[in-house]
């Protein structure tokens, strides 16, 4: 997947300090971009958790494992915000953005949705 230029561009001019794209079907981390002194390993761990963190239990089904993929999610703590968004027409792909804890969550979520849409537009 040729996502590198797209991901690099996306990181410029945003509050985000890291961006990654995960293929949740194959378990491959397709791309990762960081800036500043962000620990690359932490971003990788967040990306590897994308499949589970962008999923919710399906109610009303007897199967214990019944879960539905969700379009987006985020994990917010005092120090970091991780935003996850599925690529609209390639829902196995999840992009993950990381920003400091004092960043605006709504803006970060909007930004990660746009990044996901841009990944989707690539041939």
């Amino acid at each position: 997947m040729e996502s590198e230029p797209c991901m690099k561009d996306a990181l410029v001019g945003s509050d985000a300090v890291a961006l990654a794209c995960m293929d949740t079907r194959s378990g491959l981390l397709l791309e990762i971009q960081t800036r500043g002194d962000v620990a690359r390993e932490d971003v990788e761990l967040a990306a590897f958790s994308a499949a589970q963190l962008c999923t919710a239990p399906l109610e009303g089904l007897p199967c214990e494992e019944a879960e539905e993929p969700c379009e987006e999610s985020f994990v917010a703590s005092a120090h970091w915000i991780h935003a996850f968004a599925r690529v609209p027409n390639r829902t196995d792909l999840v992009v993950v953005g990381l920003a400091p804890g004092d960043a605006n969550i709504a803006l970060l979520r909007m930004w990660i949705r746009r990044v996901a849409e841009r990944v989707d537009l690539r041939p």
């Binding site: 932490d42 963190l53 969700c70 985020f74 994990v75 917010a76 005092a78």
Partner: peptide
């Protein structure tokens, strides 16, 4: 448990559905 591997204990997870 998963969020604990990359962020602090007090994290809040929100999944839109």
């Amino acid at each position: 448990d998963l969020t604990r591997t990359f962020t602090d204990d007090g994290a809040l997870l929100a999944v839109t559905r």
